[in-house]
Design a protein around this nucleic acid. Sequence first.
DNA 1: TTGAAAGCGGTACCAG
DNA 2: CTGGTACCGCTTTCAA
Lengths: 368, 368
Amino acid sequence: MSQSSKPPERSTPVPTPRSVPTSADVARLAGVSRATVSYVLNNAAAVRISEPTRRKVRQAAEELGYVPHAAARSLRAGHTRIVLLPAPEDPVGPRHSAFLNELQQALRRLDYTVVQYGSLGLSGGAAARAWAELRPVAVVCLGRIALSAHDVDTLKRAGARAVITMGPARVTGAHALITDQAEVGARAAAHLLERGCRRIGVVVPAEEGPALFAGARLEGARAAARGAARPAVPAPGPPVRPCAGGADSGPGVVPLAMASTEESAGELAGRWRSLGLDGVFAYDDEYAALLMRALLDAGLRIPEDVAVIGADDLLLGRLLRPRLSTVRIEMPTGEQLAELVDRAVREPAGTADRHGRVAATAVHRDST
Amino acid sequence: MSQSSKPPERSTPVPTPRSVPTSADVARLAGVSRATVSYVLNNAAAVRISEPTRRKVRQAAEELGYVPHAAARSLRAGHTRIVLLPAPEDPVGPRHSAFLNELQQALRRLDYTVVQYGSLGLSGGAAARAWAELRPVAVVCLGRIALSAHDVDTLKRAGARAVITMGPARVTGAHALITDQAEVGARAAAHLLERGCRRIGVVVPAEEGPALFAGARLEGARAAARGAARPAVPAPGPPVRPCAGGADSGPGVVPLAMASTEESAGELAGRWRSLGLDGVFAYDDEYAALLMRALLDAGLRIPEDVAVIGADDLLLGRLLRPRLSTVRIEMPTGEQLAELVDRAVREPAGTADRHGRVAATAVHRDST
DNA sequence: TTGAAAGCGGTACCAG
DNA sequence: CTGGTACCGCTTTCAA
């Protein structure tokens, strides 16, 4: 069925075992039962098999190129060791990708099967159902996909013993690692304010990918600016009019749309002087690099005329001149997260609905 | 077997459906047989089910949060729609990661289940066996993992109808997309030679990750330099002594070890004048950026004193001043590759052992 | 229109 | 020490 253009009658002793070999084939070739094959190949401790038999079985398996069928095995076992890692959707930075690799290695050492399952263009619900079909023992949801409490429930009902999210918000039923994007914005704004800026621009990417983070980062910056206006008081009295642009009292924050292209950056830089800004938080280091380049080309001095800060501490930032200030997110190491997963799997009750917070800190270089 | 510490006698109608619901549970709740459930949930065309029954089944499934068990399904079906995509191991560039996403999307549209299966620290053989356990219908092997002919055979025996590799070499039995890293080196060297360089350095990353490509890129540069020495003649007469460094005849190529850090780049730049080089191919844009930065800081002029070229055409290169010349690899689009996969799956005989070649071209900017 | 039952590949009990 | 066998959850004939 799969070989079509073949000499029809070649009496080949070995090289034509079409269709995938099963443990029954191995058993037949070795002259034993399927049970024995299973025992031998899994080094079953509870049963003792004679050395000659083992040898026969091993050799038969080798000869047939036998590989066990993961689906059958896990069906029988009633559970898998699959840790599902929804694959990142948009270009992630090198830091993030190094982190993913660490995590994978660490999970593998703990004998989990790491499966990155792409779910681009699926809504949370559809994604959760698709994931649940694989019956993963744990799901680590890093990316943009926002899981609802119901989605978490779907996964748990399908046997997932741990659901861990890493994102801006808590999710009911899951263990949330909160990467507070608002704090990133707040740190950036605070840093600019400390260095004397009064009117701050915040770049909001035009691309859809970064959108989720962008809103939170902007809000964080706004909150920091408001906080600086009325220092340290947790907003008593009438609620502040929710950020009309901030041209009135205290330091102002103005959002700036920009795409991740030289053209867009150039356009923004072209009308910079009319904006009257003395500092800018450029969403991340890549946008910051683009914008800084364009501002320099437009004849502005950095940081004298305008201070620029990015985020995510990419290598890029250190290669530019002036060196780019940034906000670094203190991600847990892959090992730490792997250990968390393992603990959650062993003791699901202990970790559900808990949450931790990952810190962000401003790194001062030359651009601010 | 899976619930142990439970109150033994709580007569709960709905809210305690511990252990994952199966199609039998749905059937029971809906008051029909498992067969009917299967028909309804799969919209079986060959059989007509009454509308009331469909409704009952759907509702029961919904109520229980039923999700079919992928393993059981594919076990029964005898095949999967899994396309295995060995996950990249080391930080890949944004271009590469955008390509991966495209590929995933396109495959999903063709109704494949994309699974990235990390295999860090596994040898080719072990990796192939691990992959084979999942019985993928196709394997697309992009990364560093070198598959042997035997590994390909293992996968095919396990039912893979297509194995596609993308790397520096052909692999017997697989459809190879040859990204000729040697050509990248050759293009870079040729570009430098055209622009008048006579003694060319080639950066060889100290890191383990890029090692596989680095060797080929270096060799390509050497070949180009040799070609320039004896123009266009395909080496008649006695075989040339295989590259002793090339201080004697024609343009020379000297390998330069360097790590991906500012320190290492600085160290290399520090002893630059003693090397007597007038051009350098810096492995890729990132290394090139580091080195160029260090060279500028050491007081050298680019491109007057030394021409610098990178590879992979990262955004980074356009943000630096001078703008970085580079070698761009013309990757197929994700859509194209997905289509290739699909074709190979439908018609395995047609594509095995074929191969294509992806091109590389030098992009001239300001640094050369 | 629906139900009963076989069987996909492996594992693990129990009997010999 | 080894073989027979009953499942795991799902699809798909074949009968009713």
